[in-house]
Design a protein around this nucleic acid. Structure first.
Lengths: 146, 146
DNA sequence: CGAGTTGGTTTCGAATCGAAACCGACCTAC
DNA sequence: GTAGGTCGGTTTCGATTCGAAACCAACTCG
C-alpha cells in the first residue's frame, strides 16, 4: 500500500491497526473471554504464525496487554486495554451490520441490554441538541462527510 | 483463510465484504462524494486493478451501485445503496477511534452535527430503558459478548 | 485524422498468507 | 530421570494476493 491516504487520515490510522481479515475477529473473541493463544487458534481457525503476529501488533499498539495467568509454568493471556475496550463501538457496529444485511437468517448475534434483554441500538447523538442524528446530517469539521 | 469462524458469524460475514485494508477507505470516499474511478485512484493512491476488483465486489454485495452520470460518452459513478449507507455507523466508529487513540494531533476528522456544529457521540442505547448502555452491559442473546 | 480522457484489464515481481513441521520451557507420571 | 504432554510460539515453503506499470477500448474534441 502506497500512502495516498492510508496513514494520514483518522480511518487510515485505525485500519493500520485493525484493518485486516483477522484482527477484528481476534478482538471479538478477546471481548468474549477467549484470551489464550491456543484457545484463539481453536476458536478462529487462524494459522498460528498469523495469530502470533497479530497479537504482537495489537500489544505494540497498546490495544491488548499480555498478562500472566499462571506462574508455574509461566503462561500469559491477552487482555484489552482501555484503548482496546474502546473498539467495542466499532465491533458492535460491524456485528449489527452483518446481522442486518448479511445474515443467512440462522445465527444472528443479537446484542441486548444485560438487565432488560432489549435489543440495543447504536445511535449517533448530538449531546447539545439531545437528539439522534441521521447519517445525512453528519458533517466533518473540515468538509462534509456524507 | 480457512473458516473457523469467518463466514459463519455476524462479524465474519461483515468482514468478508468490508474487511480489508482498502474497502472502508473506498467507502469513506464515496460517502464524501468521491465517486468516480479515477477520482478514487487519485484520492486513495490505490492500484487500479485493486480498485476495480473492490468496486466489483461492493456492487456484487449490493453495497454500491453503478449509475451513469453522463450519456455521451457513457460514464458511470458509484453510489451507496441503503445497505451501503447503513455502514456509516461502523465507518464513524472507526474514524472516532482513530481520532481518539491514533491521532498524531494534526488532522482529526471531527464529526459534527450539521446544524449546530457540536461534536457527535456514537452511543449504545437501550430503547426500552431509554438509557445509554456501557459496553460492559452488553450481552449477546446467545452468551455474553463482553 | 491525431491527441486526450475515462474506466478499466493484463502482466509480473514482491509481499503476505496458510498449513504443517519444528522447538523450548515447563509440567506430570512412571 | 526420562518419556510424554501442554502451551506458546517460530520456521519453512508453496499458494495467493498486492502493487506498479504498461496496455487497451470507447469515446470526444479539435
Amino acid at each position: 500500500m502506497s500512502q495516498g491516504d492510508t496513514d494520514q487520515s483518522s480511518i487510515g490510522r485505525t485500519l493500520a491497526v485493525v484493518g485486516d481479515r483477522w484482527t477484528m475477529l481476534i478482538l471479538r473473541d478477546v471481548f468474549r473471554g477467549v484470551r489464550r493463544f491456543s484457545e484463539l487458534v481453536e476458536s478462529l481457525g487462524i494459522a498460528r504464525n498469523l495469530l502470533a503476529e497479530r497479537l504482537a501488533r495489537l500489544v505494540e499498539h497498546d490495544v491488548l496487554v499480555k498478562v500472566p495467568y499462571c506462574d508455574r509454568p509461566l503462561r500469559h493471556e491477552y487482555r484489552l486495554t482501555p484503548k482496546g475496550a474502546d473498539l467495542s463501538r466499532a465491533l458492535i457496529a460491524l456485528i449489527r451490520w452483518g446481522d442486518e444485511w448479511e445474515s443467512d437468517d440462522t445465527d444472528p448475534t443479537v446484542l441486548v441490554h444485560d438487565h432488560c434483554g432489549t435489543e440495543l441500538e447504536l445511535e449517533l447523538r448530538c449531546p447539545s441538541c439531545d437528539v439522534s442524528v441521521a447519517p445525512t446530517h453528519v458533517r466533518s469539521r473540515s468538509g462534509s462527510l456524507l
